[in-house]
Every structure is written in C-alpha cells, then in structure tokens.
C-alpha cells in the first residue's frame, strides 16, 4: 500500500527534461563545431592545396587538440553542460572522454592511474567500432565477392 503511494507520487513528479530546448542547443553547438571543421578543411584544401585525405586528418587533429586543451582547462565540462549531445557526439567528445579520465586518474600515478584508466569511458567507442566493422565489414565483403 505504501509502495502504491510512492509510485503514484513519483510518477506525478517525474523529472521532465526540456527535450526540445536541449536538442536545439545540441543542434546549434554540434552544427557550429562541424561548420568550423568545414572551414578549416576548406582553407587547408583551397589555400594550402593539400589533399582532401590529409586535410581531413589535420582537421580531426585540430579538434582533438583543442578539445583536450579545453578539457584540461576545465572549460569543456561547462560547454558540455550546455551543449549536451553537441559536445559528446563530435570527435571532440572522444578526446574529452580520454583526457578527462586521464587527468582524473593522474593521482594514482602514470602507470596504474593515467595509462590504465585512460580508456575508461572511450573504450566502449573503440570496442564497438572494431566489433561492428568486423561484423558488418564481413557481410559487405561477402556480398561484394559474391557479385564481383
């Protein structure tokens, strides 16, 4: 009987997240990050005349670098609070999860702390990437071999 009251009251007072507002913020932030990325890529390709593959790599490096520095300075967590998915879906989020875990664990020393815990959050991304690419890659490979 008590648990019914609890369920009822908890259901009534459910936390309503401002989904639309959050999503728009994520859209804006993620969009701006990608826009800046595209600008960097264009400049590299048009002004410095680099190959598009190299330009992509340099662009990713720039974002990974900036994200790690911002994480270290304690800015990225504040951005992330506002931007939500806009901060963790771009590659900057990957760098952030690596750097934040590394910085947090540094008090346990370099080997047992930083190096051991660096992939605490980012490990899932690499693992799923490898697993799904082997799985889906095998299917694509077989299909292409079959039709070739």
């Amino acid at each position: 009987m008590e648990s019914e009251v609890f369920q009822k009251v908890l259901e009534k007072n459910k936390n309503r997240r401002p989904i639309l507002k959050n999503s728009l913020k994520a859209f804006l932030f993620g969009g701006i990050v990608c826009l800046l990325g595209e600008v960097i890529r264009m400049i590299l390709m048009k002004v410095f005349k680099v190959d598009s593959r190299v330009a992509n790599t340099i662009m990713l490096f720039v974002f990974i670098f900036l994200s790690s520095i911002f994480t270290g300075l304690g800015i990225y967590d504040k951005l992330g609070q506002v931007a939500g998915a806009g901060a963790f879906i771009p590659i900057t989020g990957f760098a952030n999860s690596l750097t934040s875990s590394a910085i947090e664990s540094k008090t346990e020393g370099i080997i047992q702390g930083t190096l051991t815990n660096m992939f605490k959050l980012a490990g899932a991304i690499i693992a799923i990437g490898a697993i799904s690419s082997i799985f889906i890659g095998s299917i694509i490979y077989m299909v292409r071999c079959f039709y070739a």
């Binding site: 936390n15 994480t71 609070q81 901060a87 952030n96 750097t99 934040s100 959050l121």
Partner: peptide, 17 residues
C-alpha cells in the same frame, strides 16, 4: 564524483535533478 559519477572534466550533461 569519482566514486559515483564521471570524471569532473568530462563534458556530460547533468539533468536538473
């Protein structure tokens, strides 16, 4: 934060609750 949540520098979004 370390014990129960994420690294303090991690850019996750905390809900208002």
């Amino acid at each position: 934060e370390r014990q129960f949540r994420f690294p303090t520098e991690y850019g996750g979004q905390k809900p208002s609750s």
